[in-house]
Design a protein around this nucleic acid. Structure first.
Lengths: 305, 305
DNA sequence: GGCTGGCATAAGTCAGCCTTATGGATCGAC
DNA sequence: GTCGATCCATAAGGCTGACTTATGCCAGCC
């Protein structure tokens, strides 16, 4: 592939040489590198042995580059400058770009509408949102933060609970205007959205209607809560949704709750990130912001209920 | 001078990253670098911690660069390539350029006339000859080899004796054609070249003429044996020279020895170089060549004498 | 002549790099 | 489906070798 790679000398020595050549002084190079003059002398000698020729001429109270040293110095300085730039660029990217993998409905019905506020708080952080229905392993990806549903036991991940994964039937007020709903079982007379969703059974169960038969209902499954909510608003039927995702629609009355009964699960929505990166400023900023937003949600909904 | 130098990550880790990025494989990078796969994994993780973001995505049986890794890799590879080139250039210079500091007469009357043969033997070594009357410290210079006169006790230097520092009066045959020289003291009737040279007293001493008074002779000192020999050939007087430097002139009769008496000294001509560099191929080559040439000289002169 | 500034050298210590060993995960073959 | 091969991660431990401290040397400079 390439002409014999001609092994590079130890990089630590090269780095010391670069500083010493720039300063034409071992002592000042040592200061810059935060080590002693003796260490610089040691490394230079090492490199000279490696190269097979002196790189500095030792004059009484100063050092000068030899011809070989002069040939080497500019190229080395240039290479290190290039490295510094490259790492500075990545460093900036690391600090300013925050990438999130999130569940679809959380993104559309919770995160995206509020992102404007985060951008105002942290104008120098660019948020990249990636939507996925699967849980993405951090080891197999390059996301900074994830929003996922589960029980919070992910090894190696720091997890902050956001809100419970719970469900309640909702529908458009028009759909139930002329219907008398005294008992949960009455809901079965209305069209259900995504009736194949297993949570329906759980909700009826919690409502005292076990072993409900939903096979009769046409399976117009939408799969994504956001769409189910939209369908409900459009009056197409009763959807089982997490009220956290539709605060506006519930507050404005676009969606109504025929029964104020929540089916709870053992799962919640979580904000997670690798434990090792918990000190990252952008991660801290985003986490704190999300948690404060969630706290605001609770304040707004809980006392009102 | 430059914008905050933003400390570079440990170079050893960067080097490992470079190889791993090129191969898209930790195992193959380890092979290239001559270390174990575990060491590569360790260094990569180190760099990722330092940078604050993953650089590789760990897929089942391979690794891929993340966006940050992709941003970093080309720049790093380029920088290392530049370093490799720079060091290769110096390496070549080290191997192919041999610089010598030598005494003037040795250069003109011994070395230069024979250098053609050395070049034939080693066409890939370029010899740079620098003439100096002072002995140059290797620590304060960048010479590979030195030719100097002395007793051979230079600490840190490998020293090979070439021939003794000895003297004999010579002159043009014309100068003595009509002169009867029975006794060394008769030389005093002829013009002496560089009579202020202290070796004259030593030679007369060795010839059984102690405390000779040379103050009468005009002090037309030339200082350099080469010039003294040339003056003698031109018939300007009797010169005290080292016959090693004038083999041709003595053989051809352009110079004659009025008395076959050599004044010896405790000094010799030496070929020296730093002990630490005795393994250098070009130094070995030159040293061996010089010594073989000197051996040839002795063969040619000694049996004849 | 002391004093200062700069580099070299010796000795000793300790961090951290690398190795060995092992485990987990996936892919392919049979 | 099981077994083996491949590749990376991780833990534990050893050992190198990069630093530090201390000292010496040399040359200018007051």
């Amino acid at each position: 592939m390439s002409k014999l790679p001609s092994k590079l000398p130890p990089m630590s020595a090269v780095r010391v040489f670069e500083a010493a050549a720039r300063h034409q002084s071992f002592t000042r190079a040592a200061e810059e590198l935060g080590m002693t003059q003796a260490a610089v002398s040691y490394q230079i000698k090492l490199l000279e042995d490696r190269v097979g020729a002196p790189l500095f001429i030792r004059l009484p109270r100063q050092v000068t580059l030899t011809a070989k040293g002069r040939q080497l110095a500019p190229a080395v300085t240039e290479a290190f400058e290039a490295l510094r730039n490259a790492f500075a660029g990545v460093e900036e990217m690391v600090q300013t770009v925050l990438s999130i993998t999130t569940l679809s409905t959380f993104a559309s019905n919770w995160l995206v509408p509020r992102l404007g506020r985060f951008r105002q708080l942290h104008p120098n952080i660019a948020v990249q949102v990636s939507v996925s229905t699967e849980i993405i392993e951090f080891a197999h990806s390059e996301f900074d933060i994830g929003i996922r549903s589960g029980t919070g036991d992910w090894p190696g991940l720091e997890a902050h609970v956001l809100f419970p994964n719970q469900f309640m039937p909702v529908c458009s007020p028009a759909l139930v205007r002329d219907v008398e709903l005294r008992d949960p079982v009455d809901l079965l007379s209305l069209p259900l959205i995504s009736p194949s969703d297993p949570w329906w059974r759980d909700w009826f169960s919690a409502a005292g209607v076990p072993n409900v038969d939903l096979s009769r209902h046409p399976d117009n499954s939408l799969g994504v809560q956001q769409f189910e909510g939209m369908a409900a608003i459009a009056g197409q039927g009763v959807a089982l949704i997490n009220p956290f995702f539709f605060p506006e629609d519930l507050a404005s009355g676009r969606l109504v709750k025929p029964f104020d009964l929540m089916a709870t699960t053992d799962r919640s929505y979580w904000l997670v990130y690798p434990k090792a990166r918990r000190r990252s400023a952008k991660i801290e900023a985003f986490r704190d912001w999300v948690l404060s937003e969630v706290a605001g949600d609770s304040e707004r909904t809980s006392p009102a209920a």
